[in-house]
Design a protein around this nucleic acid. Structure first.
Lengths: 217, 217
DNA sequence: CGGCGCATTTTGTGATCACAAATTCCCGGC
DNA sequence: GCCGGGAATTTGTGATCACAAAATGCGCCG
């Protein structure tokens, strides 16, 4: 009835955290949906204690919200909150991209291209969840090269907050005519041009912001 | 044996969180110091459960760090991490200041002046903890006018990470010749000049960064 | 037929306990 | 004198339980 630090095993609270986090990022949880600690615990076969810890961790990261009576739900950011979040992304992500630039090599660019192809494929297939997932993977993989864990943590908190609505927006909008700023970013990476890279990432983020703005419910 | 939601009372885990957070922000906990759940719990007269939740919440905010064996300690950011954190501040804080600008009125400017006076007084008195506290109060009060909780949460996470070292640095350095960018910010506020305000805040943050860089142990 | 009040159920909170891994401490051997 | 190893202690983890507040549902009265 215990699992402290078995070999490569992760603690139960960590497993619960990862499961919930993935569901939020990949759109498994709709904005506004509510969770119960007992529900989470039973759903993952653990007791309430680790479930509580995982939920609280996500609340601290603002990926989940708590009412003043302790009820937990997936937050539904209003227009103002979304504006803040996309502004944060457009300020922080170019910095991460530029910091990644020195560590970028050809294999990475190839890997990014593969992801970008999958992304466009999902887009045309109208697979909103797959699109969001691929988009996350693209930015994630690039920024990982920046070796900037503190900045990365900030950006990931923002992603957790925007992902649920993104999925909803992409699901609703036909994802019609999107300018491919990822392609521009890849070119800037190949050319090792920091300014163009920063501009491409900023444009990419701001395009997402515009999309969310017009797709507001 | 219980205290769920008594009148204006806060839950135990919230009380523990606030107590620890204040200690971190105001320098009561030295970088590298280690905590035990039982120690925290007994120190505040609660059981381990709420102590664990509070600690985990602070870990999620990166105000505390956990080793891979679950030991908790106040993080000691290295030069690279500090660079990231101050960069984040210099990107995010001007945005918050500018967003606050429309809501700024004369009473607020007066209140900020009072804080700034106390700040300089602490500086001359060599009271590092008081200085850090006043500095936090100044930025906090201004940004509160921005009504931007999502951005604010990001910045507060960064403050939690830098505060312990700031205190150390100001304690060591004589806090000799510091340019008063707060005064410049106050003038920009009075003139409702967004550009000058942003520049002043950015300079203020970057001065702090430079100070920390040269004061690195 | 629509709100209102009370009983029932659901749900978060906090304490306590057992357990195992990690850490600490101390002693004996080299 | 210093290092290594094993016992004792410390410490995090997770399960379970009691409790109270909040949410829910239902029936009664208007």
């Amino acid at each position: 009835m215990n699992a402290p630090r078995l070999d490569g095993q992760v603690p139960a609270h960590e497993a619960v955290y990862r499961a919930l986090r993935a569901q939020i990022l990949e759109g498994g949880l709709a904005p506004g949906a509510s969770l119960t600690l007992r529900g989470v615990a039973e759903g993952l076969g653990v007791s309430m204690t680790p479930a509580r810890e995982a939920v609280r961790r996500l609340v601290a990261e603002r990926a989940l919200a708590m009412t003043d009576t302790g009820r937990v739900q997936v937050p539904l950011p209003d227009a103002g909150a979304l504006d803040e979040l996309f502004r944060a992304r457009s300020l922080l992500e170019p910095e991460l991209a530029v910091r990644a630039l020195p560590g970028v090599d050809k294999p990475l660019i190839s890997a990014l291209r593969v992801i970008d192809d999958r992304l466009e494929e999902r887009l045309e297939a109208g697979d909103a969840a797959g699109y969001v997932r691929a988009n996350n993977a693209f930015h994630s993989l690039l920024y990982a090269r920046a070796n900037a864990p503190a900045l990365m943590a900030l950006v990931e908190s923002v992603w957790l907050q925007t992902s649920p609505v993104m999925r909803r927006v992409y699901g609703r909008i036909g994802t019609g005519s999107l300018i491919d700023y990822h392609e521009a970013a890849l070119e800037a990476l190949a050319a090792r041009d920091a300014d163009r890279l920063a501009a491409a990432i900023r444009s990419d983020v701001e395009q997402g912001a515009a999309l969310v703005r017009e797709g507001a419910a």
